[in-house]
């Protein structure tokens, strides 16, 4: 995965939404380093949107982020879907493809929503095997995103961090780290987000997502991608990036989508956070190197 990461888009990107697709196509160049798309919205179809996406690809790097693979389901992924996905990621020349650490189907039924998996060794093994097979099928690296879970369908054999550790021991796939999901889970389940984040395998992170969320009347926070990213999530992002170093960071906004200019301005806020974190990480590396050299010369 490390070699492939060098070819990935870097900087700060934005989830591509149809609400502003034409501005992306026909407007002046945007201060956005890449766009991310859900291939399900464009694959196995003709018409305006796939054609538009081809044009976006001539202006900006694209990566794909799937929604309905159902990685953790009991049944293996649907063969027809995989065939169509393979063709689409080929068409879009995505450097890697990601989906979610979830199940989105039960037998033949599709939820079109991400349902949580139990954090067990069995689940980790099953998902790891699927990720390996997926990478082979798609002919490119793959990554998996930690999700927001409103409930955990026990048994909770492992913490999320240990579960990820178990998973990534068995697969070469990357981690798409969603820091908003870590924050929302921490708030909803009453644990410390920074502590939870510290247990994630940072060396496997290939991309980071940030998004906004919504508080409900019951006190539960929903991962709606329907608001601006809040300061505590940006602080968590900065913490994460200090560990990961420079990786692509993506702003997701799927509901109550504001004018594109507002989103581009938010991308710049995130970019400032990223640059601060990466500068700090570089300083930290430089100091460590100097100390190591000093230790070596003393020795």
């Amino acid at each position: 995965m490390n070699e492939d990461r060098r070819t990935l888009p870097n900087g700060v990107g934005l989830g591509l939404r149809w609400e502003f697709l034409e501005e992306v196509l026909d407007g002046p160049p945007l201060a956005v380093d890449f766009f991310e798309v859900s291939p399900e919205n464009y694959m196995r179809r003709g018409g305006y949107y796939p054609a538009a996406l081809e044009r976006v690809l001539t202006r900006y790097p694209l990566v794909t982020h799937g929604l309905t693979l159902s990685l953790g389901a009991h049944a293996p992924p649907d063969a027809d879907y995989l065939r169509e996905l393979t063709s689409e990621v080929e068409r879009l020349a995505t450097p890697w493809h990601s989906d979610h650490l979830a199940f989105t189907s039960a037998g033949a039924q599709a939820f079109h929503e991400l349902l949580p998996l139990p954090f067990t060794r069995d689940t980790a093994r099953r998902v790891a095997d699927r990720l390996e097979a997926l990478s082979e099928t798609l002919g490119r690296p793959v990554a998996v995103e930690n999700i927001t879970y409103y409930a955990l369908p026990g048994p909770t054999e492992l913490s999320e961090g240990d579960f990820l550790g178990e998973l990534f021991e068995r697969t070469r796939a990357g981690l798409l780290l969603d820091v908003n999901n870590v924050y929302v889970n921490a708030q909803n389940h009453g644990f410390d987000a920074e502590q939870a984040l510290a247990s994630f395998p940072f060396d496997r992170v290939v991309e980071v997502h940030v998004a906004g969320h919504t508080h409900t009347a019951s006190g539960l926070i929903l991962d709606t991608h329907g608001a601006k990213v809040i300061e505590p999530v940006l602080a968590l992002l900065e913490r994460a990036l200090a560990h990961t170093g420079p990786v692509p960071v993506l702003l997701e906004r799927d509901n109550d989508v504001p004018p594109l200019a507002e989103l581009v301005a938010e991308v710049q806020v995130i970019r400032a956070v990223c640059e601060r974190a990466w500068r700090a990480a570089n300083r930290s590396v430089a100091v460590s190197t100097q100390r190591a050299r000093a230790d070596a010369s003393r020795a």
Binding site: P118, Y150, A151, G154, P155, T156, L222
Partner: peptide, 22 residues
Amino acid sequence: GPEERAAIEGAPERFLVYRKLV
């Protein structure tokens, strides 16, 4: 399994969030 059943029975309102979302 008993743990799965207990998890759902212990927090049905959390699982019903998925009903609303779907």
